[in-house]
């Protein structure tokens, strides 16, 4: 199905369109959220909040402002980060900043054995540290290019090209 008309329907509160979009992006969002909160139950809680928020704010999305995926990715990252800032969360969890998404992929045995998953595992193993960090900050944590540049002590231009190369490899791995 074409994405544009689907999103248009979703903005008009079409339930079927909402379900389709959920199926397209929910796993991705759950990965991002889980990487931030590192707790399955909390991740599911945040997931619910994210899609409820998406439904309520559907009309505020505009394709001129960015990709729909990026829009919902932003909602997910913000909701998850908000969660980690809550008092209840801080009590139960220690500092998670040191953990990257790659740790989940490298340590988890529960990941399924689909071609994609195997490909991504291989990809992650080959990734250089700088590459892992750039992907982590830009996609999983929602840093801007300037914020990432400061956090990694790299010029913005370097971030851009390094990120491009990382994703090129990823694309070769997962996309035909």
């Amino acid at each position: 199905m074409e994405l544009e008309p689907l999103i248009e329907k979703f903005k008009q509160k079409d339930e079927k369109a909402f379900e389709t979009l959920y199926n397209m992006y929910s796993e991705s969002m759950q990965g991002v959220i889980y990487n931030i909160v590192r707790d399955n139950d909390i991740a599911e809680e945040v997931m619910q909040d994210v899609f409820i928020k998406a439904w309520h704010n559907a009309s505020s999305y505009s394709s001129e402002k960015g990709r729909f995926f990026t829009w919902i990715l932003n909602i997910a990252r913000n909701a998850a980060i908000d969660k980690t800032r809550s008092k209840a969360f801080k009590k139960s969890k220690q500092n998670l900043d040191a953990d990257f998404f790659v740790d989940i992929l490298e340590t988890s045995d529960s990941l399924d054995n689909s071609t994609d998953a195997i490909g991504i595992k291989k990809f992650v193993k080959k990734l250089g540290e700088k590459c892992k960090a750039v992907l982590e900050l830009l996609y999983f944590k929602g840093y801007t290019q300037v914020e990432a540049s400061e956090a990694l002590d790299m010029p913005v231009g370097t971030i851009k090209t390094r990120n491009r190369n990382c994703i090129k490899e990823l694309r070769n791995m997962v996309l035909e």
Binding site: S28, I120, K121, L135
Partner: peptide, 22 residues
């Protein structure tokens, strides 16, 4: 790019196709 990122992020999800949340 988007498709690759979706697959990358989805690979981190501990639960596949979570209908319960929907």
């Amino acid at each position: 790019i988007e498709a690759a990122i979706i697959k990358l992020t989805a690979s981190v999800s501990p639960v596949k196709h979570n209908d319960k949340i929907l």
